[in-house]
Design a protein around this nucleic acid. Structure first.
Lengths: 208, 208
DNA sequence: TGGAGCAGAGAACGAGCGTTCTCTCCAGTT
DNA sequence: AACTGGAGAGAACGCTCGTTCTCTGCTCCA
């Protein structure tokens, strides 16, 4: 497994490591720029300047801008899953885990540079032209629906609750993005509490 | 008031009428093309071909493409208000008027060429670059919130219900656009029924 | 130490777009 | 009937952007 490498091979390996670092740098830069300003609005030269990766190397790592867009979408998916997963896992009770979604949203909406759902924005901008973008966005949204669905099931709710809570979250994101207010998160949370209460009668009622 | 016009003035007036017709034709064409494919993706030449209005006249009527975008956004607002207004007015009972929103959405989601909310799409594509676009979209969404708020008030609901129902509608639109399904309208409707029921206890309860 | 090859910087290229210009033709005036 | 003003068609212009190419210089092997 651990073979001897000639100096040239070592050099080649170092190149790969550099490529990996450059790749990460490009994705990080593109992530921020695409989210803040949209995808067409950010040119390759700006990406080069922001990432510090020369154009030549950039095109060696990614065959085209489309490939960068795809990589960034996948990175957004990873970040979103990690963020909301951590927020939900910080709660123990099934109902609190559901409500943690909206608390997570409130924090996000209030954060610097919040500009709505990156997937929805990309879909609006490129979904009609790029099948790959539309596909990734669909997968992301289906994954979130599934995530909420499972949390709802763990709370003992009937299957109808999951989609309702997911729609509330989606609507809160869009509304917050356009209005620039954090309120939609609280409003969605209040609605979710009512829907959860209606779907999962509290045990306390039975014991009374 | 009804002055005599020289033939040249008459001609000038006819020109104005032609401009009006051309304006309507351009907006109608742009409306369909922008919605289906996005705004950057549609060039002025395509707009000329689709509307039948020569480029020269087009630029006499609208100073720039941005002006066309703005006119189309205002047209979308008019169409949306008229559509949802008619749907709501077809119902008499306050609660039914609220629920009519989601039935209207179901019909829209199932219609040919549905691609989500034109305002949200435009906002995602241009909101970061064009302050005017962002402004119109914000106004449109604020207007819809107000519309739902008034309907909720007429149903005797506390002020919290309006935003919740608006968020549900918004979430349903986005979810339907990405998933391509009509289901979100039904799911949002079901959630709305529960929220309305919780906010406005039925009179029947009092009479029992 | 001489040479080979690759990296980086940035110019160059080609396509697409918004906008303007030119040329031709026709309607209406004198 | 000659002329003028404007309309239409489409070429042209200038700019941006994705992508590729060229040139310079450095680093690693013999």
């Amino acid at each position: 497994m651990t073979e001897r490498l000639t100096p040239r091979e070592t050099h080649a390996n170092l190149d790969s490591a550099q490529d990996l670092a450059a790749r990460a740098s490009v994705i990080a830069a593109a992530n921020g720029l695409f989210y803040a300003r949209g995808i067409h609005a950010v040119g390759m030269d700006e990406l080069r300047a922001a990432s510090g990766v020369p154009l030549k190397r950039l095109y060696r790592i990614f065959p085209s801008k489309d490939a960068i867009v795809e990589a960034v979408l996948l990175d957004w998916r990873r970040l979103w899953s990690a963020g909301i997963g951590a927020a939900v896992d910080a709660a123990a009770e099934p109902k609190d885990r559901l409500l943690a979604i909206y608390d997570f949203l409130a924090g996000w909406f209030g954060s610097e540079g919040f500009r709505g759902c990156a997937f929805v924005n990309s879909f609006g901008e490129l979904g009609a032209q790029s099948g790959r973008v539309a596909e990734i966005v669909r997968e992301q949204k289906a994954g979130f629906q599934e995530f909420v669905f499972k949390l709802a099931a763990e709370a003992g709710a009937p299957p109808g609750l999951g989609p309702q809570l997911a729609i509330l979250a989606e609507g809160a994101i869009t509304t917050a993005a356009i209005s620039g207010s954090v309120e939609p998160a609280r409003q969605a949370r209040a609605a979710a509490e009512i829907l959860i209460g209606a779907a999962v009668p509290p045990l306390a009622v039975k014991s009374v």
